[in-house]
Write a protein that binds this DNA or RNA. Structure first.
Lengths: 141, 141
DNA sequence: CGAAATCCGATGAAAATAGTCGGGTATCGA
DNA sequence: TCGATACCCGACTATTTTCATCGGATTTCG
């Protein structure tokens, strides 16, 4: 189970915008960190905008801003915008694809796992990430 | 975030083998349910065998059996065998790929999510799935 | 008007996934 | 011994997804 680079880049971008909240529109140029192609990032920011997570200002001196306070934006919001909703198997969303009904214990397991992941993602906000800028393994008080 | 069919088919196969534990080797033919190509499933069972989750008997009347009691086999075992370990980003396993050190709060978030998923997968065993054959939403006692 | 910057669809390259094929090998039973 | 059964295995193909790249259109500031 892997995450695509979309999710990763998307979070990096959102984190950057959260750090620079209130400083006016941030240009694509400034958001793009080393190793992330600017034109690709542009696409991804389009997804974030269409999902309502960022607002944009077009034209010269334009750029991107987060649309809400960092505390209100969860990792679930970002992942849904970048990778679509978590859908471990089709039988979760498309009923017709599963000939096993309620009797399918496998289905139950996928559902449980999906719920767990979504719940975890929903608990992490950009605000909480900003609050703990260096919470690494080396820093246990 | 999606699961590949490998993981899905693999779990179906393991569940079937758990149901028929002690009944002798189960042929590929009997394991294969509708919609799962037999030759593809054969490959997948090879992964499960190499991971030590199933044992095989070659030749006529041969087939596949689970190698341990269903209670001892977790979903994590099966997923690791079928899809490899969970690796949301490369920076979790390949240190050189991440220029951000402990100061990277994004990294911390991926780690937390990985731990959560692994922990959940490790708690679900084939045995527990067998014990609740029809635990659907419609059947709250 | 011209530069700065986002917007957008189309296209291409690379990788992962899903599935197929053909032959090899081991075992059972007659 | 022979043939049928059934797993083993590497190579190949097709499809899909991912990861970009490109070129131009549009908007806005100064």
């Amino acid at each position: 189970m892997k995450l695509s680079t979309r999710g990763k880049y998307g979070l990096y971008a959102m984190y950057y915008l959260a750090q620079h909240q209130g400083e006016g529109p941030q240009s694509l140029q400034s958001i793009s960190t080393t190793g992330v192609p600017k034109q690709y990032l542009e696409q991804l920011l389009g997804n974030l905008r269409r999902a309502g997570l960022v607002t944009t200002v077009r034209g010269a001196q334009g750029g991107y801003q987060i649309s809400q306070s960092p505390g209100a934006i969860t990792l679930l919001d970002i992942m849904d915008a970048m990778e679509g909703p978590i859908e471990l198997t089709e039988c979760m969303t498309d009923e017709t694809r599963c000939d096993r009904a309620c009797g399918c214990p496998v289905r139950h397991v996928w559902q449980r796992l999906t719920d767990t992941i979504n719940s975890e993602l929903a608990q992490i906000t950009l605000g909480s990430m900003l609050a703990h800028p260096c919470e690494g393994e080396a820093l246990e008080s």
